[in-house]
């Protein structure tokens, strides 16, 4: 196995470190995982991320933002496009469709088209906290974005379908938007 000095990095942003423990442990088999602590998720938190990650990352990294912290991940990808190789948003709450009672800021939604890296937005298929119209906003606004629904999961996908989430995130980090191409053989008796 290659040493940590040459392994690529993945940054996980999540307000709940326990929630992403399985994801962290799984990704750590392949990448150097960095989890900068966030004091809050408001504007400016992306600077905190940049300062924490810069001395540790070996180059452009995969950036995973979970739930409210996905908003910080988006801001960081906008602020430091040269640093983020791929962006994965897990149960993001960064956009608020018209008529939605809760959500985040409209100004961030208007900037989604400036995200430069390949992006995957992952939603629990039964997530009652996210407006059903939201996933298509990410897909249509971000230039290179795939949307994935994880069946039988609500907002906390990492807890409800941990292996499914890990497989999906790993596949996307490894193959980016080409993850849509089947990579496993279907042959039964080759």
């Amino acid at each position: 196995m290659a040493s940590d000095q040459v392994r690529e990095s993945v940054v996980i942003l999540d307000g709940s470190e326990a929630r992403s423990s399985n994801l962290r442990d799984g990704l750590a088999q392949r990448w150097v995982v960095l989890e900068p602590r966030l004091d809050d998720f408001g504007p400016g938190a992306e600077d905190q991320v940049a300062a924490a990650v810069a001395p540790l990352a070996s180059g452009p990294y995969g950036l995973v933002g979970v739930s409210a912290a996905a908003t910080v991940a988006i801001r960081h990808a906008l602020r430091s496009p040269e640093s983020v190789a791929a962006l994965i948003l897990v149960s993001p709450m960064a956009v608020r469709p018209a008529g939605s009672p809760v959500g985040a800021t409209h100004d961030l939604e208007a900037q989604l088209d400036q995200i430069q890296c390949p992006t995957l937005a992952v939603f629990g298929q039964a997530d009652g906290t996210i407006d059903p119209a939201a996933p298509s906003i990410y897909r249509s606004r971000i230039p290179n974005c795939n949307v994935a629904f994880v069946y039988d999961a609500g907002h906390d996908i990492a807890a409800e379908r941990p292996q499914s989430l890990l497989n999906l995130v790993t596949d996307y980090l490894e193959r980016r938007e080409t993850f849509i191409v089947q990579s496993r053989s279907g042959a039964i008796n080759p």
């Binding site: 996933p135 897909r139 795939n146 994935a148 629904f149 069946y151 039988d152 379908r161 499914s164 999906l168």
Partner: peptide, 13 residues
């Protein structure tokens, strides 16, 4: 919009 599905029995990207 187009989407991917990560199910227990079905996976479509």
């Amino acid at each position: 919009e187009p989407f991917s599905w990560e199910g227990r029995y079905y996976q479509y990207r």
